[in-house]
């Protein structure tokens, strides 16, 4: 058993003495630790918004964490008909994996089962640039074309961009029962960052939910960033390792209210529910901007009456090379 008197000392200390407060909510001077990942961007379109949402929901389903899902994947934003290659409503999807090989395995598998199968859909590269720009490619139609059983059609189409640059894009047209499934041959992949985070310490489940939703709403329109967990947040923040050899991640007991009497808890006395927002993004600046927007929105939504404080998850800086220092991010101007 932990000494009850000393139990909350550290946690309560930063809450009381935090130099940085937003709407009265203390922000801990700590950092979120994030890792290098590989990323790609896809554009999914359909004849109407409803089919598009169905396909996107299936495509990004079971894509919360690389711990067991293979990829962290979510809708980046909705695209209007003017923003898509085929002039139909669409969505942009961002997918992150720990290795290029894993991304190259997961994306065609999901595209084949979730997009090819959904009526009226088509799938395009969301990262503009050919092999000269993105030499590493994730297959799309390159793999899916075989469903056409020899009736598939390959077309190379030269597109002239607004800057006058011409790019030849290869498409596959696979005959299906509602017409044709159109799919780009492949899509580039690039370096990115996964695992940016901030942790909301709530006075109640109700208040932390409200703060969390406000944060996600603020992050949602931001380009290049996704929050892949359900509703954008997770309650199962994890630490590295486990007492069970088969697991390489397990519950972060330091933030579990039910264990505050048994472990070295990092929870202040007033915190009774904790939610973590995890962010993956194309680059450091975009994740920083999203963390700032999310924390600002969360604090503004419930203030100190709803949040005890905001902190972040890290592993002492030993695992990930990208460190998002909350105090710096919150005092910097948006980029």
């Amino acid at each position: 058993m932990i000494d009850e008197g000393a139990e909350h000392d550290n946690a309560n200390h930063w809450i009381e003495h935090a130099p940085l407060r937003i709407d009265g909510v203390p922000i801990q001077a700590t950092f979120a630790e994030a890792f290098d990942m590989k990323m790609t961007r896809l554009v999914l379109t359909a004849a109407d918004r409803q089919w598009c949402h169905h396909a996107a929901a299936a495509m990004v389903g079971f894509g919360t964490s690389v711990i067991a899902c293979g990829v962290e994947i979510a809708v980046e934003r909705e695209l209007s008909a003017k923003e898509t290659p085929d002039g139909r409503p669409g969505v942009a999807i961002l997918a992150f994996a720990v290795s290029g090989k894993e991304l190259e395995k997961q994306i065609p598998r999901r595209a084949g089962q979730c997009v090819l199968t959904c009526p009226t859909t088509a799938l395009y590269a969301g990262l503009e640039g050919d092999r000269n720009v993105y030499p590493n490619r994730v297959p799309l139609g390159k793999t899916l074309r075989y469903f056409g059983d020899g009736f598939q059609i390959s077309k190379q189409v030269q597109h002239e961009r607004a800057d006058g640059h011409c790019e030849t894009i290869r498409y596959w047209r696979v005959p299906v029962m509602d017409g044709e499934f159109v799919c780009q041959h492949d899509v580039g992949r690039t370096e990115a960052i996964g695992g940016g985070n901030f942790i909301l310490l709530g006075r109640s489940m109700q208040s932390v939910s409200k703060a969390c939703r406000a944060a996600i709403d603020a992050i949602k329109p931001m380009p290049g960033v996704i929050t892949p967990f359900p509703g954008g947040a997770t309650r199962s923040g994890s630490k590295v390792g486990s007492q069970y050899a088969a697991l390489f991640a397990s519950t972060n007991e330091a933030f579990c209210p039910s264990l505050r009497k048994m472990t070295n808890s990092e929870l202040p006395a007033a915190a009774s529910a904790v939610l973590e927002v995890v962010l993956d993004g194309a680059n450091f600046e975009q994740i920083s901007d999203a963390i700032r927007a999310g924390i600002n929105a969360a604090c503004e939504s419930v203030g100190e009456a709803g949040l005890v404080g905001v902190t972040a998850g890290n592993y002492g800086g030993k695992l990930g090379r990208h460190h998002f220092h909350l105090d710096k991010i919150m005092t910097e101007r948006p980029s």
Binding site: P85, D86, G87
Partner: peptide
């Protein structure tokens, strides 16, 4: 012909 490819081309 029912294909989004029409618009692309």
């Amino acid at each position: 012909l029912e294909s989004p490819f029409e618009q692309i081309l």
